[in-house]
Design a protein around this nucleic acid. Structure first.
Length: 433
RNA sequence: GUCCGGAUGGUGUAGUGGCCUAUCAUGGAAGCCUGUCGAGCUUCCGACCCGGGUCCGAAUCCCGGUCCGGGCGCCA
């Protein structure tokens, strides 16, 4: 049995006289002597419950005074259109039940009147999410996921799951978290990359996966976490240009869906969101260096972009853009080099002015070339056998990318810290809650 | 990892050697109040991160630790 008939946000003055039951949290109470107000909050908004002493009787009136802030309450009563009340209506209660009382003092202030540091908020995340602007960000994140899934389905992409527990640190580069797997050593996967490529060899043609990735790096910034959600796509019989179109398509689909369907949440955050225009600008790595050379001469062709250069490019360009044609030396072995100039490869990054959102590439699909690229990177092909086998019996040309969900949401909502876009973030220090 | 900054009631803060029996807001307790909507008014409650040192005297200065924030690095 559902304990409410309506959410606060669903009630309008036109429902005057209707009996409703609301359930939520005691956002605040105000006792004026002969009249008292209880503001009830649920996920869709606030509703004012008005208690007139003479109407509700001493008992019920008195009971409201004993309800602590943030206690869970159920209120049965009648809607009354009332111009003096917020949103033009109030609830005239016949019954108020406390379903879960809240202790005092609270670990933070859910009414958002008193500021609160991020660390304090994360320690009591369950209460932090009661704050309307915090809840709104996570509801928008859900909308982003929904819209991107819808977009993928409209493009004929199949959703898959690949293992997060893997045998070895086969991808080189970043640090993996080791775990104990019965009598064997295992790791938490840092990317579904190898698996989604194998599924191209499996003939699944177009796949996507939305799932966690784990990186054991010691980075400690506002835009890095050790556990993140990655939106990964891989498509066969397609090249890097096709993959970029699908990427900008997914991003714009998300922005469009949010602007059309999350008005209440955007208002709670105080954000006026506009949809970026496609196609996004394409800028080659070499062009980016030339742009940056006006200010920064430290960068040499072949270096990865440092934070300062990245920020300069963002400020100069001012909107989403693709960085293409990277030096092969700083992209992973599975990125396809250009045939006529192998020092440059068909890898790309999707950039927001504030940071990198996604990276992808046209992949190497020739078995022999892949083996030599692995060797060139100083890795041992023997460790990649399970992966390389998929390239020996008919692997189609393919391309794909991985997009950071939290970075997408963070940049969309202009959040200061990536932890504002993850309900229970895992960073260098935080393992609880 | 590294550099810089910080740690004061439940929460957010003021306070740069004595004026601190520590400021303000929010909150909590008690009371008044029939239209609040960041309600108002009265009274009360509640804090200097830990350890060592300097000094007649330390929230304040020094050393070490812990934790936190920001920058950079690291990051296919």
């Amino acid at each position: 049995m559902i304990l409410r008939t309506h959410y606060s946000g669903d009630i309008t003055p036109e429902m005057d006289g209707k009996e409703v039951t609301l359930a939520g949290w005691a956002h605040e109470t105000r006792d004026l002597g002969g009249i008292a107000f209880l503001v009830l909050r649920d996920r869709k908004g606030l509703a004012q419950v008005t208690l007139v002493k003479k109407l509700v009787g001493k008992e019920l009136f008195k009971s409201v005074r004993s309800i602590s802030r943030e206690s869970v309450v159920q209120v049965r009563g009648n809607v009354k259109a009332e111009p003096k009340a917020p949103r033009g209506f109030e609830i005239m209660p016949t019954e108020i039940r406390v379903l879960g009382s809240a202790e005092v003092p609270l670990p933070l202030d859910p009414t958002e009147k008193v500021e609160c540091e991020l660390d304090t908020r994360l320690d009591s995340r369950f209460m932090d999410v009661r704050r309307p602007s915090v809840l709104a960000a996570f509801e928008i994140e859900s909308a982003v996921l929904r819209s991107i899934r819808d977009y993928f389905y409209s493009q004929g992409v199949t959703e898959v799951f690949t293992p997060k527990i893997v045998a070895a640190a086969t991808e080189g580069g970043t640090d993996l978290f080791p775990i104990s797997y019965f009598e064997k050593e295992a790791f938490l996967n840092q990317s579904p990359q190898l698996y989604k490529q194998m599924l191209m060899g499996a003939g699944m043609d177009r796949v996507f996966e939305i799932g966690p990735i784990f990186r054991a790096e010691e980075h400690d910034t506002r835009r890095h976490l050790n556990e993140a959600i990655s939106i990964d796509l891989e498509v066969s019989f397609a090249d890097d240009k096709d993959a970029m179109e699908l990427l900008e398509g997914a991003v714009v689909a998300a922005y469009r869906y949010v602007t059309e369907n999350c008005l209440r949440q955007l208002e709670a955050i105080g954000l006026n969101l506009s949809v970026p225009k496609v196609p996004f600008r394409r800028i080659t790595y070499t062009e980016a260096l030339e742009l940056a050379s006006e200010r920064d001469v430290k960068m040499q062709w072949g270096d990865d972009l440092d934070t300062e250069t990245e920020r300069f490019l963002g400020e100069t360009i001012g909107e989403h853009y693709f960085l293409t044609d990277w030096p092969s030396s700083i992209k992973p072995y599975y990125t396809l080099p250009y045939e006529d100039r192998p020092e440059v490869c068909r890898g790309f990054d999707l950039m927001h002015p504030r940071m990198e959102l996604a990276s992808g590439a046209q992949r190497v699909h020739d078995h022999g070339m892949l083996v030599s690229r692995i060797k060139e990177k100083g890795l041992d092909p023997a460790g990649f056998e399970f992966y390389l086998n998929a390239f020996r019996y008919g692997m189609p040309p393919h391309a794909g990318w991985g997009l950071g969900l939290s970075r997408l949401v963070m940049t969309m909502l202009n959040l200061e810290n990536i932890r504002d876009a993850v309900i229970f973030p895992r960073d260098r220090r935080r393992l609880v809650p």
